Amino acid sequence: MRIEEIKKLGLWPESKKTTNKKGIDELESIGYNLFYIGKNADLYSCPGDEAKTLLVRSDRTSVFDIPLNLEIEGKGIIQTSISNFGADFAKKSGIRTAILSQTVDKALKVYPRCQLMELCKPLEANIDNEVVQFELIFRNYLTGSLLDACQNGIDPYGLNLPSNLKQWHKFETPLFTPTTKGVKDIPLNSQKVKDTFPEIISSLEKLFKDFTTFAYERGIVVVDTKFEIFVNSAGEWVLGDEVLTPESSRFIAREDFEEENFTSMDKQILRDFGKASNWKEQAKSLKTGEKLEVNVPKEIKDKILSGYSTILERLSK
């Protein structure tokens, strides 16, 4: 299905610009046509009439939603394997995902980077008289933006948390902290979103709890995760492409966590480096389509790649 047909079905947002560039030769030659270049992956329309797309992960890397000139060789292949694992875990729990079971020809050189995806519309609903899309976040520990809010006496999700909780406090039941999805993620009242999607939220909470236990038994502490929900052509809700992966979650090696070393085995390493290097300020001068030129030491790249490899090895054992 060509991108023009995809747009007619309302399955591609007008706000996202498509490209006329040619993609990988071995894909273009068999009917897959590049139509979108993302920060970390590319999308191809597929031959045939089905509303699906081919996602091809690159080794490109970004943080803080800043496009970088940085590639970490091999990361895209590992990310794809972790993403497939997360999708399979969700499917075994009875939850549909946008990632399809069918694959491209395994003889293709690019096969390890590929996922066939069902094209879906983002889940939307009216919250406080505004139609919004959602990022549904579950947290096992008090850290990050929620910690900052608590320390400043702010209750963005209507959770009524005690003000004396310390960083890395473990919640008995995972906290649900939904936000809008957009240029700026705005916190939403937790109970209002639960009341709007009771079946979805209860299913995701169980999935998050089950995965937390599964990962812990294999040496990984799951700090939090973000789910994005879409609606397919049959009107069913499905999980998006990043399901229980380092791109949507924070994972810490259990042995590190127990020694109070709370560095995530993912892009947090790069975020910390970028924060120290003031990338956010530098990125303000970028023009549309430009990438921030950064110089990342090999030891940082190797540490990130090692983290992703460890996650895949431990989850898969």
Rank of each mutant, 00 (worst) to 15 (best):
N189C: 06
A215I: 07
D49L: 13
E258Y: 08
V110N: 14
V222R: 00
G153Q: 07
L312N: 08
G144L: 10
L286H: 11
K298P: 03
N261A: 01
L100H: 08
S29K: 12
H169A: 12
P198T: 14
M1A: 07
N40A: 15
L68D: 00
F197A: 14
F176T: 00
S306C: 03
C150P: 01
T61G: 00
T103M: 04
I252L: 05
P13A: 10
F257H: 04
R271Y: 13
L286K: 09
G74I: 04
T61P: 02
E281A: 15
E242D: 09
L207E: 03
K106W: 00
F64L: 06
E217R: 15
V231D: 00
V223W: 03
P297H: 05
K39R: 12
E242R: 04
Q115F: 04
L207S: 06
S62R: 07
I220V: 11
L175T: 04
V294E: 11
D59V: 03
T263L: 15
G182K: 04
S83R: 03
I6D: 07
I201K: 07
V238I: 15
I200E: 10
L204Y: 05
L188F: 12
F138T: 05
G48Y: 14
E130L: 08
K184P: 02
S316A: 08
E242C: 04
K109L: 03
S81N: 13
V110K: 05
T263E: 12
L108N: 03
D128F: 07
G74F: 13
K106R: 11
K109T: 14
T196A: 15
V132P: 08
Y308N: 05
A51M: 14
D241T: 01
V183I: 13
K39C: 07
E281T: 14
T18S: 08
R271V: 11
N189K: 14
N232R: 14
D224Y: 11
K284N: 06
K303F: 05
A215F: 02
V231W: 01
R271C: 11
Q79D: 06
Y32S: 04
S58R: 09
N164V: 00
Y141N: 09
N20V: 09
S93E: 14
L11K: 06
T177K: 07
F273C: 07
P178L: 00
N261P: 02
K194I: 09
E228D: 06
I30T: 09
G48V: 12
Q167P: 02
T213M: 09
T213K: 14
W168Y: 15
R254F: 05
M1I: 11
Y308G: 09
T103W: 00
E118R: 13
T288K: 13
N160S: 11
G274N: 09
D128N: 08
S15C: 12
E217G: 10
D302T: 13
K121R: 15
F89Y: 15
A215M: 14
L68P: 09
K303H: 10
C150F: 01
E258N: 15
Y157W: 15
E4H: 03
E50F: 11
A107N: 14
K109C: 02
E199P: 02
D266M: 13
S233D: 11
E293K: 10
V104W: 00
E293M: 00
K21G: 04
P47V: 06
E199C: 07
C120Q: 04
G144P: 11
